[in-house]
Design a protein around this nucleic acid. Structure first.
Lengths: 73, 73
DNA sequence: ATGTGACTAGTAGTCCGTA
DNA sequence: ATACGGACTACTAGTCACA
C-alpha cells in the first residue's frame, strides 16, 4: 500500500475529470507546476495542508484524495 | 478551515472510540507519545504517510481521518 | 497518561533548464 | 502541455525533558 501513489492517481483522475491542466491546478494550489507533475507521479509525500490545497484546486473534498480508486466506496 | 485541527480531532475521536491511550497509538505507529499528543492538538502538519500510519494504528481507513466531523457525508 | 518547546536529521516544495 | 533532474530554503519527522 503506497499512499503517495494513491494520492497521485486521485489527483490525476479528478484533474482530468475537471478538464484542467497541471499548470492550472498548480496555479490554483499556489505551487510549482513541476510539483503537480511529481505529485501525480506518486513520487511525493505531501503534507495534509498541501493535500487540502490540491482538493480546493480540484473542487473536491479533501478526504476523496485518499480514497482507494477501486475501493468499496 | 484548518486541516491540522481536523486531523487532530479525528485521531482523538477514533482513538477514544477504540479505547486506546496516546501511548498505545504511539507504539503502534512506531513514534513517540509526544508526537501523538501534538498530532491531536492540531499543531502538526503530517504527511500522508504519517497519516496512513496513524490510520493503521487506529484500525480505520486513512481517508476517514480527513473527513469533517459534522460534515454532510 | 497528557501537553509543550527545543532540538537534529531528513525532506517537502521552489526555481531553472532540457526534452 | 508534460516529465525529469539539480541546487536551494523552509518546514516536518521524530525525540527528550519538564510540568
Amino acid at each position: 500500500m503506497d499512499v503517495r501513489r494513491l494520492v497521485g492517481e486521485n489527483v490525476r483522475r479528478y484533474r482530468l475529470a475537471a478538464g484542467l491542466t497541471q499548470e492550472q491546478v498548480a496555479e490554483r494550489m499556489g505551487v510549482d507546476r513541476a510539483y503537480v507533475s511529481s505529485l501525480e507521479a506518486g513520487t511525493r509525500n505531501p503534507t495534509v495542508i498541501t493535500l487540502w490545497h490540491a482538493a480546493q484546486a480540484l473542487g473536491v473534498e479533501v478526504h476523496l484524495l485518499l480514497r482507494a480508486s477501486g475501493g468499496t466506496g
